[in-house]
Nucleic acid binder design. Structure first.
Length: 268
DNA sequence: TCAATTTGACCGAC
DNA sequence: GTCGGTCAAATTGA
């Protein structure tokens, strides 16, 4: 595959590139923080940066999944039954909630999974359900985007891993159609601050509302426990040789991009 | 008072 | 018939 001029890239790809660049910058900031003596403030910053990195990659995965999903996507049940495709008569409760529980089981091709020691990914979610899953030690929690009322159909499922309860497996479905607002807010946050103070963005990081709090004992612990054991981190590492930014040429070397085939999406 | 969470019920997929 | 995803009333908390 030949190199592409950045300005010629499709919007979706630009968004991916932008998020990758943002994630790299954040990772660099995190590295800087970790090189300093560990303090409470530093731990907080490190955690915020970790969330920021997670959010960047979540956005990337969201965008990429959307591209592939266009071909294979079957409508996600959540919020997608605005039509009248539910033909059940609802005999038991015909008077109200005629479409309650009307949905199709999710297709795995429209989802992606990450594993992290926190439920948080920097996005705003509202919990709408919890289920005990057969043969699972821990219940599965269902979240939808807080901005569902604005048409955002992104949902996710979070479940603690049976073999390693400190970790949460998060499966995302759909993409954030409210992402423009989120990104705009983030840009404001980032650009409002002097470069030397980029770490102190004012965005409120929601508390980890359940499960263990993961303190960062040391910089090594952060890297080891938060990143190196997660599948997402492995994905991040695997991305490195696939896209190489050339500042001089102002282009991306896209060689090897077809290795993304394993992630079940396509570039258009 | 209002928004978020909890939890039992509903219902399609398997 | 069972399982899993979603709904929505009830509850909780800020």
């Amino acid at each position: 595959m030949s190199s592409l001029s950045y300005k010629d890239l499709p919007t979706k790809r630009k968004m991916v590139i932008g998020e990758l660049v943002r994630g790299k910058e954040t990772a660099t900031q995190l590295k800087t923080v970790l090189q300093k003596p560990v303090t409470d403030h530093g731990s907080v910053l490190a955690k915020e940066l970790s969330l920021k990195i997670i959010r960047s990659f979540t956005e990337i995965l969201s965008v990429l999944n959307y591209g592939g999903g266009a071909k294979k996507r079957s409508l996600i049940a959540a919020g997608d039954h605005g039509g009248s495709d539910c033909s059940g008569e609802n005999k038991k409760r015909p008077r109200v909630k005629a479409r309650r529980g009307c949905h199709k089981r999710r297709k795995t091709s429209d989802s992606w999974t990450t594993v992290f020691p926190t439920k948080e990914d920097g996005c705003a979610w509202r919990k709408y359900g919890q289920k005990i899953i057969l043969n699972a030690k821990y219940p599965r929690c269902y979240f939808r985007c807080t901005h569902k009322n604005q048409g955002c159909k992104a949902t996710k499922q979070v479940q603690r891993i049976k073999e390693d309860p400190i970790l949460y497996r998060t499966t995302y479905f759909g993409h954030h159609t409210c992402r423009d607002k989120l990104m705009a807010r983030q840009i404001i946050i980032d650009t409002d601050l002097p470069e030397s103070n980029l770490l102190c963005f004012e965005e409120k990081i929601p508390p980890v509302d359940a499960g263990p709090t993961i303190p960062f004992e040391s910089k090594e612990d952060i890297v080891r426990s938060d990143m190196s054991d997660s599948s997402l981190w492995h994905d991040m590492k695997s991305l490195e040789p696939l896209m190489v930014w050339s500042p001089k040429m102002k282009c991306f070397d896209m060689e090897g991009f077809d290795e993304f085939a394993d992630l079940d999406f396509t570039f258009d």
